[in-house]
Amino acid sequence: MARSKKKVPEVNSSSTADIAFLLLVFFLMTTTMAVNKGLSRQLPPYNPEQEKVDAKVNVRNMLTVLINSEDQLLVTVGGETKYAKIDELREITKEFITNRHNSPLLPDKFEEEIDYFGKVMVTKDHIISLQNDRGTSYSAYIEVTNELIAAYNDVRNELSKEKFGMTYAELEERAEHDVEAKNKLKALKTYYPLKISECEPKNYGGKK
C-alpha cells in the first residue's frame, strides 16, 4: 500500500471544452457575418435660396430619369422622352456619357488636357438628373441608382482596359497604396466625371 513515487496529479481539463463552447455560443449570437457594403453617394449642400433657381442646362447635356410612384421609368434624352425598362437604362446612360458618334442630340464635347491621355474630347458638361416620387419604392430607387453608377463604372472600365490594361476595379484596389494607380484613377474620373444630380422631391403620385 505504500506509495512508491509521488506524482503531481494532472490538472483536470475536461471543462475546457465547455468554456470554449460557451465563448463560441456567445460569439455566434452577438456577431453577424455580413460586411456592410453599399452605394456611396454625395449629397448636394443644403441651400434653400438656390433651390428656387433652376439651372439652365442645354437640352442635349441633360439625361432625365423620372421614377413614378408605380416604379415606372420615364427617360428624357436629347429632347426625346420615352418609357424605359430598368435593364435598358445602363445602355442608354453609357451612350449618353460617351457620345461616341458625336451625335448633336447627345452631350457637347470639349477638348481637355488629361494626364495619360493628352488632349481628348470629353463630355464634361453632361448631367444626369434623377427624380423620384415620394411613393417610389426604395428598391426601385436603389436599382436605378445602381444602374447609373454601373454605367459609369462600365465606361471607365472599358477605358481603363484599353489604356492601362487592367480593370477599373483592379486600379481602385491598387490606388490604396500606389501613387501611380491613384493618378490613373484620377485621370479616368476626369475623363468620365460622375454627375448624377437629384432633384427636389415631388409628390405627384398622391400616395405617401
Binding site: N36, L39, R41, Q42, L43, P44, P45, I142, P201
Partner: peptide, 19 residues
C-alpha cells in the same frame, strides 16, 4: 427623402445606401 433633406441641413453629405 425626408432623412436626406435633414442630412443636407447638417452638412452630412457623404452617404451610403447599404445593400
Amino acid at each position: 427623402t425626408d432623412i436626406k433633406q435633414r442630412l443636407r441641413q447638417v452638412f452630412a453629405l457623404r452617404i451610403n445606401y447599404v445593400a
